[in-house]
Design a protein around this nucleic acid. Structure first.
Length: 221
DNA sequence: GACCAGGCACATC
DNA sequence: GATGTGCATGGT
């Protein structure tokens, strides 16, 4: 029997506090970061974003003008630089063509409609789309990631058959539709995932220790 | 020197 | 429809 996710949230917030997400200064920076951080450590993403800032290229219009080689070299520290240059370009093509490069205009669109549009962009999957919607657009969406899935699996709250959509549905059904809560919840999941619920778990000191089922962690991690 | 990191698209069966 | 693989840097 899974615990109340609200209890989990309040417990985590009480022990770890606000995580102050997303660590980006503007909605556009959040969008770029969301693509660059795919399967990548955030510190590497910071280097790439720093390169773009130093070159004064962190605007939709300027980034859209950049050729592939130059963009790829600038974002090199974030890894997968050729693929991510293509993904950024695809997002920028979409943003320029559909919204004249205006994120404010883009986010005027309804949540479900915009989510579908974002998912249609090559290189933007569910987590990237939802991160953009929540952290750049202040939309009320729950972001699922590998950490969330691992934490939920290990505590026996979900089964192995739960995919992204199933986990998202479960969480949004169990929590009030509050974007501030969704914002903090996901950030706390990442924190727990990084510090405790690692490939080699550190349950002894984990804030979620009291939520472990009888017999300890679940799953084959 | 492995292992890991805030995914995703595509190939293959 | 499920499963496997390529993409790549930088920290532990």
């Amino acid at each position: 029997m899974p615990p109340s996710l609200q209890k989990v949230y309040h417990h985590l917030y009480k022990s770890m506090g606000s995580q102050h997400w997303w660590p980006g200064e503007t909605p556009f920076e959040v969008c770029v970061g969301a693509i660059l951080t795919q399967n990548t450590n955030w510190t590497n993403v910071e280097k790439a974003i720093s390169n773009l800032k130093k070159a004064h290229l962190l605007t939709p219009q300027r980034l859209h003008q950049l050729d592939h080689q130059r963009l790829a070299q600038l974002i090199r520290p974030a890894g997968y630089f050729n693929i991510k240059a293509k993904r950024l370009a695809a997002f920028l093509d979409y943003l320029m063509e559909a919204y004249e490069g205006d994120l404010g205009l883009m986010f005027q669109k309804s949540l479900t409609g915009l989510r579908e549009e974002l998912l249609a962009v090559k290189g933007i999957g569910p987590e990237t789309a939802d991160s953009i919607l929540l952290y750049a657009g202040n939309k009320s969406v729950f972001v699922v990631d590998a950490y969330t899935r691992r934490i939920f699996l290990r505590h026996g709250w979900i089964g192995e058959d739960f995919d992204y959509a199933a986990i998202q549905e479960y969480c949004m059904g169990a929590l009030p539709a509050d974007r501030a809560l969704f914002n903090e919840f996901h950030a706390l999941m990442v924190r727990v995932g990084k510090d405790y619920c690692r490939p080699r778990p550190r349950c002894e000191t984990c804030p979620l220790k009291s939520f472990l089922p009888e017999g300890g962690i679940q799953g084959g991690f």
